[in-house]
Amino acid sequence: EGLCAVCGDNAACQHYGVRTCEGCKGFFKRTVQKNAKYVCLANKNCPVDKRRRNRCQYCRFQKCLAVGMVKEVVRTD
């Protein structure tokens, strides 16, 4: 048992190249599959942790990419 590289929640295994929780795994997968574009309403440096991970989708997705999650391994079929 480890911690999610994105939000610090409990994470049992790796998803898309990085140890993440189920919440961040699902968020990343949905974002890539929908080709979603998010906008940060602040300064693009919002805190992303277990308690606040749902407040800014833009910053959460940027953190997913920054920690090494790989868009190309998300299935789109």
Rank of each mutant, 00 (worst) to 15 (best):
K50M: 06
G68E: 01
Y16T: 07
R51K: 05
C21T: 00
G26I: 03
Q14N: 08
F61Q: 05
C56E: 00
C13P: 14
E72A: 07
E22T: 04
V67H: 08
Y38V: 09
V74C: 08
E22V: 05
E72I: 06
V39E: 09
G23E: 11
C46F: 00
V18E: 10
T76I: 11
D49V: 03
N43S: 07
D77K: 08
V67S: 08
G26C: 06
C13R: 08
K71M: 03
Q57G: 09
E22I: 03
R55A: 06
K71T: 05
C40I: 03
A42T: 11
Y16R: 09
N43V: 11
R75E: 14
R19I: 10
M69Y: 15
A42H: 15
R60F: 07
F28W: 08
A66S: 05
K63D: 02
C13F: 14
C46A: 00
G8L: 15
V70M: 09
F61S: 04
K37Q: 10
Q33L: 10
F28V: 11
F27T: 00
C13G: 13
F28C: 02
C13Y: 06
V32H: 05
Q57E: 08
Q57L: 10
R60L: 13
K37W: 12
C46G: 00
N35Q: 08
R19E: 13
C64G: 04
V73K: 15
M69F: 10
A36R: 08
D49E: 12
F61V: 02
R53E: 10
T76M: 06
F27W: 07
Y38P: 01
R53V: 12
K25N: 12
R75T: 15
C46Q: 04
F27S: 00
L65V: 08
P47R: 08
G68S: 04
A5E: 02
C13T: 12
K29L: 12
G26N: 03
C46I: 01
D49N: 02
V67K: 13
C24V: 00
A66W: 04
K44Q: 15
C56L: 00
V73E: 09
C46Y: 00
A36M: 08
Q33R: 04
N43D: 03
A36Q: 08
Q57A: 13
V73G: 10
C59V: 00
P47S: 09
N54F: 06
H15V: 12
R52I: 05
E72Q: 14
V39L: 06
C4R: 02
Y16F: 12
N35S: 05
A66Y: 01
V48G: 02
K44P: 02
F28I: 04
V48R: 02
V73L: 09
P47C: 05
G26M: 04
V74F: 06
K37S: 05
K25M: 13
G68T: 02
L3S: 07
K37G: 09
R51G: 11
G68Q: 02
E72Y: 01
F28D: 01
M69G: 02
K37D: 09
E72R: 11
E22M: 12
V32A: 15
A42R: 04
G26D: 09
A36T: 14
K44H: 07
V18W: 02
G2E: 15
R30K: 11
K29Q: 08
G26F: 13
K29A: 12
G68M: 08
Y16G: 11
K63T: 12
R51E: 13
K71P: 14
A42G: 08
R53G: 13
T76R: 12
F28E: 00
Y58D: 07
F28A: 08
E22C: 07
K50C: 07
A66K: 05
C21G: 02
C13H: 14
C64M: 10
N35P: 08
T20G: 03
Y16A: 13
L41F: 08
H15I: 05
C59D: 00
F28H: 07
F28L: 06
H15G: 08
C21P: 00
V74R: 07
Q62N: 03
T76D: 14
A42N: 02
H15Y: 04
V74A: 08
N35A: 12
K25S: 10
R30V: 05
Q14R: 09
Y58F: 13
P47G: 08
H15C: 08
A36L: 12
L41T: 08
K71Y: 14
V39T: 12
A36E: 11
L65H: 15
L41R: 09
Q57K: 05
V32R: 15
R52P: 15
V67R: 06
